[in-house]
Design a protein around this nucleic acid. Structure first.
Lengths: 132, 132
DNA sequence: ATGCTATATCGAAAATTTTCAATATATATC
DNA sequence: GATATATATTGAAAATTTTCGATATAGCAT
């Protein structure tokens, strides 16, 4: 499976990162503002911001020694797209049929060879076996 | 922060769960089909399916001793809504202003008392201090 | 009821993620 | 240059998540 999804969704799977995102919805924030609000150490903030930026959800901007963070609209749109893809998918009926068929054929083979059905042989297969 | 977000997004933050979701986009699948495809033990599948169902992303259906899983469209729509909320947020300019103001006031207080600026006093404060 | 299969739960080990003190790097000021 | 501040990195401990063997529960068939 494509780890693209993981890189993006992982950003949302930690309470501190979610709080950062929540703060950023109120507009651009500098690192020190975030540090003040969350009660974590500076290295910990750095760690989380790296993950958020790597996911594309957050954008960073340097000004002298400081760093400003803001929501990256493009990255969020991409996350939306990935989520949508997982939610509704390709409706690939053909692929689904092929998979089911291969399971049925395997089961039929077993029966022909006088073997007992394998464990976890699946409902569909068993039903077909009964029907056939 | 509301853990609602965490419960939903955590569902997407594991490779095995993402693979399950990917399979479910091709239509309803029974537990044994998932077990066959992923190379994990039965208790592990059970563990992941519980998380997916608890998040509302996946729906389960019993048929005799078997269990069928499918994408829960409502749950996904909800996830979309949460993601959108985090992406664009409330645009609460007022809140942002209040926070900035309180930081400035604190800095001003420090200066009045002849104190040096605290570490991590933040760019905004420093700028204002220079300007004022 | 007994035996069989599918799934769930428990508990401990394994793997991963998060945390922070110490330290490094980068930028600005003097 | 030296000094000070902001952020990054390292490395090891702490916390959390994932994994699976053993076992429990539930449904079906004989």
């Amino acid at each position: 499976m494509n780890n693209e999804y993981l890189r993006v969704f992982r950003a949302f799977s930690d309470e501190r990162r979610l709080r950062v995102l929540e703060m950023l919805t109120q507009g651009e924030q500098c690192a020190c503002a975030l540090l003040e609000e969350l009660s974590i150490s500076q290295p910990t903030l750095s760690y989380h911001m790296k993950i958020l930026c790597a996911s594309g959800i957050v954008r960073e901007r340097h000004v002298g020694p400081w760093k400003y963070y803001s929501i990256n609209t493009e990255g969020c749109a991409y996350a939306q797209k990935l989520l949508q893809k997982l939610s509704f998918g390709g409706e690939d009926v053909e692929m689904r049929f092929i998979r089911l068929l291969s399971r049925l054929l395997r089961a039929a083979e077993d029966i022909k060879n006088g073997l007992r059905p394998a464990k976890n042989a699946c409902c569909s297969c068993l039903c077909e076996r009964v029907a056939g």
